[in-house]
Write a protein that binds this DNA or RNA. Structure first.
Length: 347
DNA sequence: TCTGGGGTCCTAGGACCC
DNA sequence: TCTGGGGTCCTAGGACCC
């Protein structure tokens, strides 16, 4: 029985590369992409040119912080339409090599290489990934980092191990050695919070996690996450490569430039968001059963309220009535910095 | 002093039914 | 008047991902 072979491919500094192709004059300059491109407003950095990176600007910091660190940087809004176009071309190239391509955001994807007549698909995966990489370079002018492994978890960790323009492959027999000394936080699904809790239990490396009894992990993290941690620590990941899936929910939220204390502004904003998300619902020929609103106060305390309608609908009237009822059930003891609306239970 | 936006999945607890 | 146990559905919140 041959094993699986999964490729993970990720474009290097995707947003920055696309911007530089559209505006060649940016070459060699410090620039930052994020939100609507106004560093005076609230918003996060999505991408940074190498020149701005050298000044300490990082993805995930606020635009204001970025401006402080690098006053001469140019700021641009994220031009999602252009990124989506480039992403489509990228995904089309991957689709030439396998029917099983799962996009993961705009700039990365998993590709499962199918076994030919029961043969081990691993060698084929190696040559396919090389070919993808050079076609992406030749046809799109973008570099990519590629990882190959027996499953999605290992493939993704491989592509992250060598960047940019990297290539790294691990066969099943090498997995344990590869994982052993890595910190638990490098496993997919172990974020800052979980890494900290594991640290408190004396578990710092992947090898230590693998030695921890499943029952101990289940007690501390619940049955599903506990078992998942154990499997991932041993390099086991059975999750399939899923080519396309309908979204389960649609979400719109907005942070005010200035915290809002006036209930009328909240209502007005929620109405606009509800209209927007309902339009997207209709465009995808879906109906939604449940509405959720989110309110974040100026002290960052965040609450959600959800309610279901009689039956799934795409009627703005019904959805807005539900949204409004949820809003009216919320106490507003202090100014609000963010409101959002989610539609779920899509059919 | 500051902390976006769009998603997914999991957990815990309560309601409800048999 | 008291009240088990299993299953399912719903809601609220949190962790994680890009």
């Amino acid at each position: 029985m041959p094993g699986r072979a999964v490729i993970h491919i990720e474009l290097d500094s995707f947003f920055v590369s696309v911007e530089m192709k559209m505006r060649p004059e940016l070459k060699g300059t410090a620039f930052v992409i994020g939100a609507d491109g106004d560093p005076a407003k609230r918003g996060f950095v999505s991408a940074v040119s190498p020149e701005a990176k050298r000044k300490g600007v990082k993805v995930g910091m606020t635009l204001r912080q970025a401006k402080k660190l690098c006053a001469e940087a140019l700021f641009y809004p994220a031009d999602l339409l252009s990124y989506e176009q480039a992403s489509g071309k990228f995904m089309a190239i991957l689709g030439d090599y396998s029917p099983l391509v799962e996009s993961f955001g705009l700039d990365e994807a998993f590709v499962e290489v199918l076994s030919d007549k029961g043969k081990d698909p691993f060698p084929a995966a190696l040559s396919i990934s090389n070919e993808m990489k050079s076609r992406v370079k030749r046809e799109l002018g973008l570099t990519a980092s590629v990882g190959v492994g027996p499953n999605k978890l290992i493939a993704k960790m491989c592509s992250e191990a060598k960047r940019p323009d990297g290539f790294f492959a691990i066969e099943e027999t090498e997995v344990e050695k590869f994982l052993r000394d890595l910190p638990v936080g490098s496993l997919c699904g172990v974020g800052a919070r979980t890494a900290q809790r594991l640290g408190e239990l004396g578990i710092k490396t992947v090898a230590e996690l693998a030695r921890t009894p499943v029952s101990h992990l289940e007690r501390n993290f619940g049955p599903i996450i506990g078992r998942g941690l154990n499997e991932h620590s041993r390099g086991i990941d059975e999750s399939p490569v899923v080519p396309f899936s309908e979204p389960d929910s649609l979400w719109r939220e907005v942070t005010f430039d200035e915290d809002a204390a006036d209930p009328y502004i909240l209502k007005e904003t929620l109405y606009a968001l509800t209209e927007d998300v309902t339009a997207r619902l209709k465009a995808s020929w879906d109906k939604a059963l449940t509405v959720t609103i989110k309110v974040r106060f100026n002290n960052f305390m965040t609450l959600t309220r959800s309610g279901s309608m009689q039956e799934a609908t795409d009627s703005m009237n019904d959805i807005w009535r539900t949204t409004l009822k949820l809003l009216e059930g919320v106490d507003l003891p202090r100014p609000v910095r963010l409101v959002g609306v989610k539609l779920s239970g899509l059919v």
